[in-house]
Each structure stands twice: as C-alpha cells, then as structure tokens.
Design a protein around this nucleic acid. Structure first.
Lengths: 214, 214
DNA sequence: AGTATTATGTTGACACTGACAACATGTTAA
DNA sequence: TTAACATGTTGTCAGTGTCAACATAATACT
C-alpha cells in the first residue's frame, strides 16, 4: 500500500522478485523466463531491464532473498532454547528443512545457476550472514568448553559442508527413490533405501558431533 | 578406427558426446548448445536427435561418462596402498580432486541441470557404482575393526555428504575469494580466507574420522 | 510557473535456442 | 530387386535474452 499511487507501475522491482520467487517454486530455476514474469506483472517484456541489468541480476536478487530467509530461520532457533548443544542441533535441522521446503530456491542459492557469485557484493554479504549463524553458534560451544578449542572455521567448514551436502544430495534425489516425499518434507518421511530423513540427519549430526565435541 | 567406414557419419553418437564433454569444460553446462555441437561435428542441426531424444538425454550421457570417470579414479587408489585408513583418505581426496579437475562436469552430474535423474536407469547405476567405491572401502574398515560396527550407510551417507559438500562449496566459490586458483587445483592452492585446500580436506577428513573410527 | 532531466515503460528487432514434421539418402534384409 | 530401416537434411516454429529507439510520467532546476 505504501506506494500504491499510479506512477508507471508503483514498485515493479519488488513485484518482479515476488513473482519470480513464486515461479521458481513451481517451474524451477531453468523454467524461469523474464518474459513470462513480465507478462505476469502486466508489463511489457523489456520492462524488467529497467530494474535488472540482465537475467543474472534478477536471479541474484532472488538468491539474496533466499539467504535472508535462511538466516532468519536459523536465527529463530536461538529463542527456542538456551542449551548450546540443542541450538546446534536445531540450527542444523532448520538448515536442511529450509532446503527441503524451498528446493528450487536452494538450488539457485548454492547451485551453478549463478555464475561468478563472488563478484556480487550484496550476495556475498547475504550468504555470509547465514554462515555467521553457524559461526556464532559454534563459538558459543567453544566458549562453553563444549566444543574443541580450535579456530572456529576448523569446525564450521566441515559442518557447513556436511549440511550442504545432505541438503543437496537429498534435493537431487541421491538419497531417495521418491523425490516427491522429500519435497513435501515431513521430517520423518521415507527418503529411499528404507532410510528416513530423521535417520539421515541423526547419523550426520552424530558423526559431526563426534568430531566437534571437546 | 573400428567403424571408420563411410556410412553416414560413422559413429556420430560418440562424437557428439566427446565434443559435448570438451565444450562443457570451457563453456559450462549452460553454454552447451545442441546446434553448436552438431556444427562442430560437421553435421546438420537436427542430426543429434537421431541419437538423443532431447537435450536432456545428451546431458545424461555426459553425466554417465563422468560417473564412470569418478569411479575409475577412486578405484585406482586401491592399487596404491594396502592400508584401509590410507585408502579411505586417498579416496576422499580423489573424489574432491575430480570435482576440482572437472568442475563443470561435476556440476552436471550432481547439479540441477538434469532433472528427475532417478528416472534414468543407466544414470542411476553409474552413480551407484561410484558410491559403491565408498561403500566397499568403509566395509573393509568395519571388517578390520577399524570403523564402528554399524550399518555401512550409517557411516557412508554422512561421509559422502561431506565430500560432496566440500566439493560443491569449493566449486561454487563459497570457500574462496579466488575461484580460479581452485580450478587449476594444485592441492595446496589458496582457497580464500587464508585457508588452503589441503587444510580444508585435512579438517574435514579429521572430523569425519572422529565420527567413523571405532 | 515552465522547462530540462531523469526514471520508467513500450515497441520492434535480432540472433540464438530446442524441437517437430517432412523429406532424402545410404544400409541392410527378405 | 525391393521393402524396411537407420541415419542425416531442410524447413519451420515458438520461445528466449537482449539491444536500440522511442514514449511518457515524475522530479529538479531556473
């Protein structure tokens, strides 16, 4: 409502991002078409180019939204518990759950759809702030004498790699015969090979913890 | 030479795969064009459709080649050492090294370029056989009383997830400011944040081992 | 106020893509 | 020899990202 005046459109930029975020969920990253988005926004095919230099710029904008969402989800956990151990566990689950809830967006964020991602400052920062969620949690663990007293990244990098690995393998159907069931993500759904997502997470976290605990 | 007779072309199918494998290395998955490949093969734009139902089919063919390559690299290691511990370590490195040597192919194999990968039997099998390389190694470790006596997948899944996580995060530039240096993959190249690939691997393997060892 | 400048949106065009249908040609088999 | 088939070609289509030129609304300046 804020700027619902006539104008040319009002706030096209945000509208385009919203539509794109919605489209990506159904049609996937590859199914995303600038023209289709423009049409849905009720605007000419080339209008988006007044707000995004090219398609890549729009993709980056979506990815940034995604990273903010991911960060928010992990941040929420902090208000749930005071136990560092539990916070660590829950943040891991929140991460994978996000990937399961928004697989296409997740693919966009971490996948090869965006090339040369380091070149975009804003994107790097957004990504960094999600990562920071993991870092602070691990720092807490170290300070509490719960985790090994080593440089944070020595623990964070492998943990992150594992969370990302699980997520993307799950998304891309390497753990499951039935990809659909994961998309609908009930945390205890079967993920193939008679393994449930819960079990996978359990095993992974357990394995990570053995390496992380002091 | 086997079928170098005149024919229409000889063995177009293989030629197309070869060209595509070469192109993907330079131009990436998205830069891959059926028409460009056909032209390079000295053949009309639609000729590929006699050998591949659609673009996806060609991509799958490339991915299969990739998985065979990956399996071969990991298999080689077995002849290098008799120590299970060392075999485990080397296979992990071989895996990540493959990802670093053929980043674009790796992205194709594991990334979202191929949708609904489980639908293709041959692809699933090729992928499964690479995974088997990890399984057999871990089984050895369990049998030798070196690894925990639990179902293989309880160990294999997290390990695989971690290896894949490291690989794709490295490829996609999450660990490094300078992506180029990783592409050229000398095992000790800097990967950003003043961390070397060696260190990352070291940390990860160490963390994995803590969770795996009996 | 009136005018210049900028921000935004439109139209038209281009090269490129994956894909389909219809046709041509060489290979093999009855 | 002829029928069937595998393979390759030509023509065509809709769809894509993107550029250049033009149109209009909002703002800034005199």
């Amino acid at each position: 409502m804020e700027k619902t005046n006539n104008y040319h459109h009002g706030n096209l930029r945000q509208t385009l991002i919203d539509i794109a975020c919605s489209d990506i969920r159904d049609k996937g990253v590859d199914g995303l078409s600038l023209r289709a988005i423009a049409k849905k926004a009720g605007v000419s095919a080339n209008a988006p180019y007044r707000h995004f230099a090219d398609k890549r710029a729009l993709l980056i904008a979506i990815a940034i939204v995604g990273f903010e969402e991911l960060r928010a989800r992990m941040e929420e956990v902090e208000q749930t518990t005071d136990d560092v151990m539990e916070e660590f566990r829950l943040k891991g689950i929140a991460y994978v759950k996000f990937a399961g809830d928004c697989p296409e967006k997740y693919k966009l964020m971490f996948g090869p759809a965006i090339t040369d991602r380091t070149s975009d400052e804003t994107l790097s920062m957004a990504a960094g702030e999600s990562y920071e969620q993991l870092l602070t949690c691990i720092r807490k663990g170290i300070d509490a004498g719960l985790f090994k007293d080593v440089p944070v990244q020595t623990l964070a990098d492998p943990v992150w790699a594992m969370m990302h690995g699980i997520s993307s393998l799950l998304i891309d159907g390497f753990f499951e015969e039935d990809a659909q069931s994961f998309r609908e993500l009930k945390a205890s759904c079967p993920v193939g090979r008679h393994v449930t997502l819960e079990e996978v997470m359990q095993n992974n976290l357990q394995l990570v913890l053995h390496g992380v605990l002091a």
